[in-house]
C-alpha cells in the first residue's frame, strides 16, 4: 500500500503561489483578453474566436513565425555543436580552468539590451569596429539595409552571447565523468572519436537536453537584442513574433489580437519544448533497466 507524505505540500506551496501570481493569473488574463475587444477604460466587448481566426489567417503572423523557426533552427545548429567543441577543448585542471570559466561566463552577465547596444555600435559601417573593418576589406556589408547582413549580425550576436551557456553546461557534464571510464577506454585502445561517441556524449545527454531546451525557448522568444540592433528591419526581415506581438499590443493597442497571438505563440513553444524533452529524455528511459513495462 502506497503511503502519502502530505508534508511535501507545505514545501511546494510557496512555489505554487509564486507560479500562480507570476504565470497562471497573467495567463488567465490573456485568455480573457483574447476573446474580447477593448476600447480602453476597462471596457470589453465579447468577440468570441474572431481574433484567433484573424491571427491564424494573417500573413504577418505566418511570416514572423517562419522567421522565428528559421532563427531558432540556425541558432541550435550552430550553438550546440560549437558549445560541445569548446567544452571539449577547455582544460580540466590547472589555472586555465578558472580563466576559461570566467571568460565563458562574461557574455552571460551582460544584460540583453546592453548586448544589443554593443552589437548595434560594433556592426555600424561608419564607427563600428566590425562594420568598418568589413567595409575596408571590400565587403558590401550594411546590416541596416541588407536582409542577409542583418540576419548574419543577429545570428553572430546570439552565438557570441549564448554559446557560453552551452559550453558551461557541457563542461559540467564532462568534468563529472569518472576517470575510470577514460582509463578503460585507453586500455581498450579506443580512438578519440570513440571516447567522444560512447563515453562523453552519453554522459552529456542530460545537460544537452537542458541546453537545447533553454536555447530553443530563448531564441524562439528573442526580443530585446534584435529590437535594439535592427528594430525588426530592414523592412520586416528581422521582425520576430515577439517584436510583432509588442508592436500589436503596445504600438497599435490591439490587445485582443495580441492576446490571441501570444496564446498561439505560447502553445507552439509548449509543443516544441515537450517534443524536445520527450525525445531526449526517452533515450534515458530506454537505457534504464526494468523500466518501460506496460
Amino acid at each position: 500500500m502506497k503511503s502519502w507524505n502530505n508534508k511535501a505540500w507545505f514545501l511546494v506551496l510557496p512555489m505554487l503561489l509564486l507560479v500562480a501570481f507570476s504565470a497562471i493569473i497573467p495567463l488567465m488574463t490573456v485568455v480573457n483578453y483574447s476573446v474580447q475587444d477593448s476600447f480602453g477604460n476597462n471596457e470589453f466587448y465579447w468577440v468570441g474566436l474572431e481574433w484567433f481566426k484573424e491571427v491564424l489567417e494573417s500573413e504577418r503572423f505566418h511570416n514572423a513565425l517562419m522567421r522565428n523557426l528559421l532563427f531558432s533552427a540556425i541558432i541550435l545548429l550552430i550553438e550546440i555543436p560549437l558549445g560541445i567543441a569548446i567544452a571539449l577543448a577547455m582544460p580540466r585542471r590547472g589555472w586555465g580552468v578558472s580563466v576559461c570559466l570566467v571568460l565563458m561566463a562574461l557574455p552571460l552577465l551582460i544584460p540583453w539590451n546592453v548586448v544589443g547596444t554593443i552589437w548595434q555600435v560594433f556592426a555600424r559601417v561608419d564607427i563600428g569596429l566590425l562594420g568598418y573593418t568589413l567595409t575596408q576589406l571590400g565587403f558590401d556589408y550594411n546590416y541596416t539595409q541588407d536582409v542577409v547582413d542583418a540576419w548574419i549580425t543577429l545570428i553572430v550576436m546570439d552565438v557570441w552571447h549564448w554559446t557560453s551557456l552551452v559550453v558551461l553546461l557541457c563542461y559540467s557534464g564532462l568534468v563529472s565523468i569518472p576517470q575510470a571510464y577514460y582509463q578503460a577506454a585507453r586500455i581498450d585502445g579506443a580512438s578519440r572519436w570513440a571516447v567522444f561517441r560512447y563515453i562523453q556524449l552519453p554522459k552529456m545527454r542530460r545537460v544537452l537536453v537542458i541546453a537545447v531546451l533553454l536555447r530553443f525557448m530563448d531564441s524562439f522568444m528573442i526580443y530585446t537584442e534584435p529590437f535594439v540592433v535592427t528594430g525588426g528591419g530592414p523592412g520586416n526581415a528581422t521582425t520576430f513574433l515577439s517584436i510583432d506581438l509588442v508592436q500589436m499590443a503596445i504600438g497599435q493597442f490591439d490587445l485582443g489580437p495580441a492576446a490571441a497571438m501570444s496564446l498561439i505563440y505560447f502553445l507552439i513553444i509548449l509543443l516544441v519544448s515537450w517534443v524536445f524533452y520527450t525525445v531526449m529524455t526517452q533515450q534515458d528511459a530506454d537505457s534504464a533497466p526494468g523500466r518501460g513495462q506496460s
Binding site: F52, L56, E57, I264, L267, L271, W274, Q282, A285, S294
Partner: peptide, 30 residues
Amino acid sequence: RGILRFETTRGDRLFVTLLGSAFINLAWLA
C-alpha cells in the same frame, strides 16, 4: 509505454490530450 513507444504517466496523457486539443481547435478554426 504505448503505441508512440515512449513512457507516459496519467498526468502526461492529460497534458498530451490538452495540448493536442488546443491544436485541434486551432486547426479546425483555421
